[in-house]
Amino acid sequence: MASLFYIAAIVAVLATILMLTRLNPVHALLYLTVSLLAVAVVFFTLGAPFMAALEVIVYAGAIMVLFVFVVMLLNLGKHTVDAERPLARPEAFTGPGILAAILLFEVVFVLARAQSRTFVLAQVGPREVGLSLYGPYLLGVELASILLLGALVGAYHVGSRRAQGRTGVVRSDRVRVAAGGDLVRAGDDRSSGPA
């Protein structure tokens, strides 16, 4: 299990570095996905299969797919690769590199101190996760769910077509509604911006 852990960890680190250095955004996202999958394997080797499964389902399976989806919709071409190029110069990595080196040093230090201990402390199955979520951490779960509900309502409000006449409506929207369709007449309300 220990060797599996180290292999997965190295894969995760390498994939993350490659993610940072890719110029093509979709390739970078793919490396990020690989990194998340490697982290899932790390969870598994540490005795948390439920966490590993959730990592795959939620992060790699849902959130990253949405990222890829959005990037696909942006219709990025060769010009984005050119635009990314100055950002990916070695100098740009000095600050993050130093910070990451500090973290790396800490991790190595902790691992060196704790080398005698075994990795797998206990198998944390779905039952344990559920019990602790709805036992001691119930308040946290409820807070998170309220936050998500707020986000949901907000998203619904932003996406709603019947936002006419309420606050936060830009004038061009009103023009569009008044015109009775999705088309804004030429020259109408182009320069003034939001009212």
């Binding site: 996905t33 899932a40 439920f50 795959v56 399976g61 890829v68 199955g125 779905p126």
Partner: peptide, 19 residues
């Protein structure tokens, strides 16, 4: 003991293929 979750995870990774 996470067989169903494994299935869910794999099926959600399958989307990548298409996308």
């Amino acid at each position: 003991n996470i067989a169903l979750l494994f299935f869910l995870g794999m099926s959600s990774l399958g989307v990548y293929s298409i996308v």
